[in-house]
Write a protein that binds this DNA or RNA. Structure first.
Length: 893
RNA sequence: GGGCGGAUAGCUCAGUCGGUAGAGCACAGCCCUUACAAGGCUGGGGUCACAGGUUCGAACCCUGUUCCGCCUACCA
């Protein structure tokens, strides 16, 4: 007995923390400085500093960890760089809430003190997700942890901003942007989330200044009546016969009594509404464009909180929704409201606070995207960046080709402050990487830095090179840029992938990553999106606590099929918890069977696995092991994590545990001699260790815990190597399968004939093929042990034993007829049914094959190997049906 | 409106070259056989959404239909 015994069940809670700490303490995820090994690098998609680990993070981190650990074990110099982003708006919201609780607000506190406060919050409670990732076992290089507001990364931001500005790719201008009236900041197009809402369409009459041809007024339809106060035109389609004559005429805007022109513009749909559209350039994206085309005046009617301003006449001071009601009722009183219809529309809300966004004219900083997008499109077109699965490329192209300029300024304080200084004297703008002390234009010192900060995604776009030290020319950049792969969710292809591609190509002259793996989205068991409001959120930390991190990780991996959403049900995790326990117990079995003699042999080097000393069972498991290694590597390299996990599951449970462990028990008992016992122990121990290595990228904790106790292992699996395929034994493995088939056939008979498991049976195997007889003789002890057989006879043919039940065994080329005598216990009726069933199945299959082989078209046109395969199959089936028929004959006579 | 994806066992899903439809879970029967009852053995269960087409042969390729997701869009 080994001293290293295991508990009967696996207790993840007691081992996970120890290993997580150990990996970090030993810095096992830190790549070698000057490594000869090929590089493999990834940057983590930086989670928000305000965030907690959710299933999306857990999935993505698990998959990345599988990549990182397997590559590391396979001899790559792996860098997986972790970090977090500063989440400008979200973080500011958190701290503003704190201030509000103290009866303060950021304006009372002041900019400098406020930012200090945010840093304080960051240091105290920000980035909890980092610890949660460590808990998940993520093998990031924690010594390289980065934060978007770090000094180095901030320098990269300034460098990029300045460079793009000098090149004219960053500009400042009056544009219509999405404004959040609660956060008081501009939002980029992507930060607005649209939802279908039940609204109304109001039909409003604008009186003509000079009624003509009996027409008194023009009716326009709108979903936002309050914006009419800022209307500066009414547009109609120039092709619209109804209104053609009115183009150039004027209408009088109710309430504010402004005279505005009727204009012709192609963008107006003739069919929708009345065919006449009110134009509010200061509060609508489309109207803004129309306004530019027709050089219309823009009149803002709301302030930064979306309250009506001085331009709103009698509605000044009202909230926009109150104003809407008052405008509608006012029009009604004047008889200018024609009708109201129910109308579904898409309303945009702030992605941080869901407040309905107000399109507003405002002075903002923009990145001119088109010149940057071109090269980024090309990089995907010519394959320098590959998407997996490939169809996501379409989404990328669509967006990149229809891209609008990116609004990068935010009216908040937490973030990278825009490195632009405005001159109070001459109005000139000075943009610089280092704080200037005078105006570039007039040389005066009366300058002031722009108050705005940059969109958080601006710094995230630089992440793949800023984290490696850019703009310094560092060794890390040289070794790890471009990164090998970026793993992320499809919903940030726009936010992040596309922008990284643009910035990487612009500033590094190379793609930021060679492959982009887009993982699935996790939904609940019913296929619904998880959300706090629905209450169907599964907390990964709770799952890890309850079922063990390894079980949880394995579940995520096995569900991560490409191109499909993941429906996560808790009982799946429980299922893989059982798998962990199975692994634990086969390890337990192994350790229980490695005795003193074995350890002594180990010490003297005699217990090394020796392929030339394998017996039939050893060769079979070795063959399966080789296949497992091959298939796992192939699957991981093509991002088929589900396939890899399935292969492992099958190997461990159905090959190693169900068969090899049962087969090897014979030799472990010492009945085949001490030498054979030692060989069996060596094979078992080796296969177990290899199994731990194979599983390690998926289940890092349990595998380390077990490997530590297995003989001949020191240190960590993580730092060790990955198993390599060994010698192949295809023919020997097939022979083992023939033996297994006989075992299955006997078990089958036993169950069907209700032979109690405790009763031993006799068995006769008749086989024409001498090779098969030899195989079965070699496997005789296995058949006895695993099919619970007492007396076993193997012969070419013989007297059919009396009162026996028969079956035909063999998945291989040749069939054996198996008889189990049951004394007086045979229920011939049951037996007849059994055989008839099997016979009809075989005959059905055979007749299908015969029909096909009888078809000349098939034999002529199908590839010869397919025809040959089917011929052989038919032959085997005919042998089988013959034997079954003979069996039936015997029963009936 | 445009685009993408899906429909295979009771459930969740694999199925890569077009060549015998698979797994896990669930279910049923028997079993506490010394690694494991979070287990073992055995079994039942499918018109591959529907209709055509291509082919010797289709779950797979093509066309159309139905249903279900998701993403996008300036019909105010």
């Amino acid at each position: 007995m080994s001293e290293k015994t295991l508990e009967k069940t696996y207790e993840p809670g007691s081992v996970e923390g120890r290993w997580a700490d150990y990996w970090i303490k030993e810095k096992l995820a830190t790549p070698g400085e000057r490594s000869e090994k090929p590089s493999f690098s990834m940057v983590i998609p930086p989670p928000n500093i305000t965030g907690a680990l959710h299933l999306g993070h857990a999935l993505n981190s698990t998959l990345q960890d599988i990549l990182a650990r397997s590559r590391r074990m396979r001899g790559f110099n792996v860098l997986w760089l972790p970090g977090i982003d500063h989440a400008g708006i979200a973080t500011q919201n958190v701290v503003e809430k704190q201030l509000a609780a103290e009866g303060l607000d950021r304006h009372k506190v002041g900019r400098e003190a406020f930012i200090e406060r945010v840093w304080k919050w960051k240091n105290e409670s920000g980035g909890t997700i980092i610890n949660q990732l460590k808990r998940l076992g993520a093998s990031c290089d924690w010594t390289r942890l980065r934060f978007t507001m770090d000094e180095g990364l901030s320098r990269a931001v300034r460098e990029v901003f300045t460079s793009l500005y000098k090149e004219g790719l960053i500009y400042r201008g009056d544009y219509i942007i999405n404004w959040c009236p609660r956060c008081h900041t501009a939002l980029s197009d992507l930060e607005v989330e649209f939802n279908e809402t039940e609204g109304s369409l109001w039909y409003m009459r604008y009186p003509l200044v000079k009624p003509a041809g009996g027409i008194e007024y023009l009716t326009v339809a709108t979903t936002r009546p309050e914006t009419m106060l800022g209307d500066t035109a009414v547009a109609v389609n120039p092709e619209d016969g109804r209104y053609k004559a009115l183009i150039g005429k004027k209408v009088r805007l109710p309430f504010v009594e402004r005279e505005i022109p009727v204009i012709g513009d192609d963008s107006v749909s003739i069919e929708f509404g009345t065919g006449a559209v009110k134009i509010t350039p200061a509060h609508d994206f489309n109207d803004f464009e129309v306004g530019r085309r027709h050089k219309l005046q823009s009149i803002k009617v709301m302030d930064e909180s979306a309250r009506m301003n001085e331009n709103a006449g009698p509605f000044k001071g009202m909230d926009r929704y109150e104003a809407r009601k008052k405008v509608v009722s006012g029009l009604e009183e004047k008889g200018l409201l024609e009708k109201t219809e129910k109308h579904k529309l898409m309303l945009g809300g702030c992605y941080r606070c869901s407040t309905i966004v107000e399109p507003t004219l405002s002075k903002q900083w923009f990145v001119k995207v088109a010149p940057l997008a071109g090269p980024a499109i090309e990089a995907v077109e010519d394959g320098r960046i590959k998407f997996v699965p490939k169809n996501w490329e379409n989404l990328y192209f669509d967006w990149m080709r229809n891209i609008r300029d990116w609004c990068i300024s935010r009216q908040i304080w937490w973030g990278h402050r825009i490195p632009a200084w405005h001159c109070r004297d001459c109005g000139g703008v000075t943009v610089s990487t280092i704080d200037p002390d005078k105006c570039e234009s007039c040389g005066c010192k009366n300058i002031e830095q722009d108050p705005d900060v940059l969109d958080t995604w601006f710094s995230s776009a630089l992440w793949p090179f800023s984290t490696l030290g850019w703009p310094e020319k560092t060794g890390d950049l040289k070794a790890f840029y471009p990164t090998s792969v970026l793993s992320t969710s499809f919903d940030i292809i726009f936010f992040w992938v596309a922008r990284m591609a643009m910035m990487g190509l612009k500033f590094m002259k190379d793609v930021p990553f060679r492959e982009v793996y887009i993982h699935a989205l996790i939904r609940d068991a019913k296929g619904q999106k998880m959300s706090k409001s629905k209450g169907n959120v599964i907390d990964p930390l709770v799952m890890m606590e309850q079922y063990g991190t390894d079980a949880f990780r394995f579940t995520l991996a096995v569900l991560a099929a490409q191109g499909r959403d993941i429906k996560l049900a808790e009982d799946r995790i429980a299922g893989y918890r059982n798998f962990c326990n199975k692994i634990w117990n086969v390890a337990r079995f192994t350790l229980m069977n490695l005795d003193e003699t074995f350890f002594e042999a180990m010490a003297s080097g005699r217990a090394r696995v020796d392929e030339s000393r394998f017996n039939m069972a050893d060769k079979w498991i070795w063959e399966r092991r080789n296949a497992c290694i091959r298939e796992v590597i192939e699957a991981i390299d093509t991002y088929r994590f589900d396939e890899a996990a399935r292969v492992l599951y099958r190997f461990v449970w159905h090959e190693l545990c169900d068969w090899y462990v049962e087969l090897v028990k014979l030799d472990l008992r010492g009945e085949s001699g001490a030498e054979r016992k030692l060989d069996a122990q060596s094979t078992l121990a080796t296969v177990m260790m290899d199994t731990m290595k194979l599983l390690h990228p998926f289940m890092p904790f349990i595998t380390e815990e077990i490997a530590e106790k297995l003989p001949g292992h020191a240190g960590s699996l993580m730092a060790g190597d990955f198993p390599k395929e060994g010698r192949a034994f295809p023919d020997e493995a097939a022979r083992m399968e023939d033996v297994m088939d006989v075992i299955r056939a006997v078990r089958n008979i036993r169950t069907d004939m209700n032979v109690p498991p405790s009763a031993m049976a006799d068995c006769f195997c008749f086989a024409d093929d001498p090779g098969l007889r030899e195989t079965l003789s070699e496997g005789a002890e296995y058949i006895k042990l695993l099919a619970r057989v007492k007396g076993l006879v193997i012969a070419e043919k013989g007297e059919r034993p009396g009162d026996s039940v028969s079956a035909v065994a063999g998945a291989g080329q040749k069939k054996a007829e198996v008889f189990v005598p049951l004394g007086g216990l045979v229920d011939f009726e049951v037996e007849e049914k059994r055989i008839t069933k099997e016979l009809s199945k075989a005959e059905g299959e055979a007749s299908g094959l015969m029909k096909m082989l009888g078809n000349e078209e098939f034999t002529k046109k199908a590839p010869p190997e397919v025809v040959e395969k089917d011929r052989a199959r038919l032959e085997v089936l005919e042998e089988k049906t013959g034997k079954l028929k003979a069996g039936l004959e015997r029963i009936r006579t």
